[in-house]
Design a protein around this nucleic acid. Structure first.
Length: 557
DNA sequence: TCCTGTTGCGCC
DNA sequence: AAAGGGCGCAACAGGA
């Protein structure tokens, strides 16, 4: 397959390297050039792979010009994966400019114009780094899996840029009505909304504390104690256990104050424009490979505001999520046939009950989550012991990962992503002073804690890989369902760990849902070739995101 | 006054 | 009933 390496040159020029041939074009001419190649080569079924330092820097201008690319290779993401991959000979990543690649961080979603013009990191040679990376992968004993991981990672970066570009359809009027209903009219800057002010008054009365500011934890704690309530903190869960007239207004105030500050009018002003909510995603932003988000709070779109996510007229939202993604991934990666059998069907936990492994669905859930998170005590810890005999391969895999972590070793996902090391703390437990019982105890705690992390890393990380393969394949399937530019075809507008939202013309809703299911099967086959594991999707076709899931309609207007 | 750490809540 | 993994965000607290 053709690879075209793109590098930024000074003075707004771009260097293209293809099969060793160099060519310089103006950056402004790039969209047309890319569009032409994509169109020409689509006919032959093999569009080029665009190789660039950072998808978040190259792709948005192309999208803005109406150009979509089929595939890319994100050198920055790939470099970071390879740097930590246990199967890679690190010497192969060293060479000209490699120090810069080591240091390359995610591009901030700030104004790109702020980048210094002649910073070396601005003008790295993509073709040079690409050659190193390909050599490193080729020389690895896990070349196939690493290649798949890098491809999926890069496709994910394309999805992230496209989702920010398209945005989640967001009705400001619906959101504002919701805010006014719950909080009262928008207050002047720095002031509390009416409804919050009323609740504060109610709390003050109930606690007989006329000057209390409930937003101050120390003040609130003191007031609660003066009222004879013996509490250690001011958490909602703590307050809920109390029997006192101040509790109800206090909890209501907490809830509404949170809504006001995180998804209130200020949030709308900052993040919603032109009828779209455009959060910024950071692929592989967490060490397990899961995405993070650094603007808009895309990892947490509270149920309370989901009624405002409404499809355009004549369009729908197709919401698809995987039930029990991580237990299924564990079954696949461990090759545990018993767990894979329990995973047949829509409810893995129920499958475990039906197979006679546990007495109740809740026991199944407790046991599996306990195994994946490292619960040691309580009901969950006890369930783990029994299930280990029933599912030795699956439970053995996470157990091995935990042991490795406790020894200070790194672990890897199915496709070869390595965990970050325990690092400094492990090497240098304390100051140079003598080891005391205290430092030993701290060391032991640290070891167990890192073991819980590595235990979870292998499953969460492989789950992220499955999800990447899923959305990468779905992205292409959606593209083929429509015609014209990205926004006029069914397209992804949201992705979070095990869930996607597709904005689609209403008449294509069923086709989109079917493609989501097909893509899930493709992802499973890619990752768990040997052992087919079911990844059933629950899909719903809705006008508003709030209607998705359990079929519960939003309350109110 | 700025900056960092903690708290508490939201999501998976 | 509680505990175990990963995140982001806003506000407060407290030190510099």
């Amino acid at each position: 397959m053709t690879r075209v390496c793109l590098s930024r040159l000074p003075e707004g020029e771009v260097l293209l390297v293809e099969a060793g041939a160099e060519r310089v074009v103006r950056a402004a001419d790039l969209p047309a050039l890319v569009a032409e190649r994509e169109a020409d080569d689509a006919a032959t079924g093999s569009p080029p792979r665009w190789v660039w330092d950072d998808t978040a820097r190259w792709y948005p201008p192309l999208l803005a010009a109406g150009v979509r690319v089929a595939r890319c290779h994100d050198l920055r993401l790939a470099h970071h994966v390879l740097r930590r991959a246990p199967a890679v000979d690190q010497r192969l990543l060293e060479g000209e400019q490699s120090e810069h690649w080591h240091r390359l961080g995610p591009s901030r979603p700030t104004d790109p114009a702020l980048f210094e013009i002649d910073d070396t990191a601005e003008h790295l040679r993509a073709d040079v780094e690409d050659a190193r990376q390909r050599a490193a992968v080729a020389a690895s004993a896990e070349a196939g899996r690493l290649g798949l991981l890098l491809g999926a990672e890069s496709a994910g970066a394309l999805v992230a840029a496209e989702m920010t570009h398209a945005g989640i359809p967001w009705r400001v009027d619906v959101h504002e009505r919701l805010l006014v209903d719950l909080l009262g009219p928008r207050p002047p800057r720095g002031a509390r909304p009416q409804r919050l002010e009323a609740l504060v008054a109610e709390v003050r009365r109930a606690l007989d504390a006329p000057a209390l500011n409930p937003d101050s934890r120390p003040e609130l704690l003191a007031a609660l104690r003066r009222a004879g309530l013996d509490v250690a903190d001011t958490r909602a869960s703590t307050l809920r256990a109390l029997d006192h007239p101040a509790v109800a207004p206090l909890l209501r105030h907490k809830q509404l104050a949170h809504l006001f500050s995180t998804n209130g009018w200020a949030w709308l002003d900052q993040w919603v424009g032109g009828g779209r909510f455009r959060p910024s995603y950071q692929p592989a932003g967490s060490s397990t490979g899961r995405w993070s988000s650094n603007g808009g709070g895309a990892l947490s779109i509270p149920a309370q505001v989901r009624p405002a996510a409404v499809a355009d007229d004549g369009w729908v939202l197709v919401v698809a999520d995987v039930a029990q993604l991580e237990p299924r991934v564990l079954a696949g990666m461990s090759g545990d046939r018993a767990l894979a059998r329990s995973a047949r069907g829509a409810d893995l936990y129920q499958g475990m009950v039906d197979d006679g492994a546990v007495a109740s669905r809740n026991d199944a859930k407790l046991g599996l989550l306990g195994a994946m998170y490292g619960a040691t005590s309580g009901e969950s810890g006890r369930m783990v012991a029994g299930l280990t005999r029933r599912y030795p391969d699956a439970f053995g895999l996470v157990e091995d990962a935990a042991r490795a972590g406790e020894r200070g070793q790194v672990v890897r996902t199915l496709l070869g992503r390595g965990s970050p090391g325990l690092g400094e703390v492990w090497e240098h437990p304390d100051d140079d002073g003598p080891a005391t019982a205290d430092t030993h105890a701290r060391q032991a705690r640290l070891r167990r804690s890192y073991g819980r992390f590595t235990r979870n890393f292998v499953v969460q990380g492989t789950g992220a890989e499955w999800a990447l393969c899923w959305i990468a394949d779905l992205r292409n399937r959606l593209w083929r369902l429509g015609s014209g530019r990205l926004e006029s075809r069914p397209h992804l507008v949201f992705f979070l760990h095990d869930e996607v939202v597709v904005h689609a013309p209403a008449e294509l809703a069923d086709a989109v849902a079917a493609q989501a299911v097909e893509a899930a099967a493709t992802a499973s086959a890619l990752l768990f070739r040997g052992l087919a594991v079911d990844f059933p999707l629950s899909t719903s076709v809705v006008r508003s995101y709030a209607e998705a899931g359990k079929g519960v309609a939003p309350v109110g207007g």
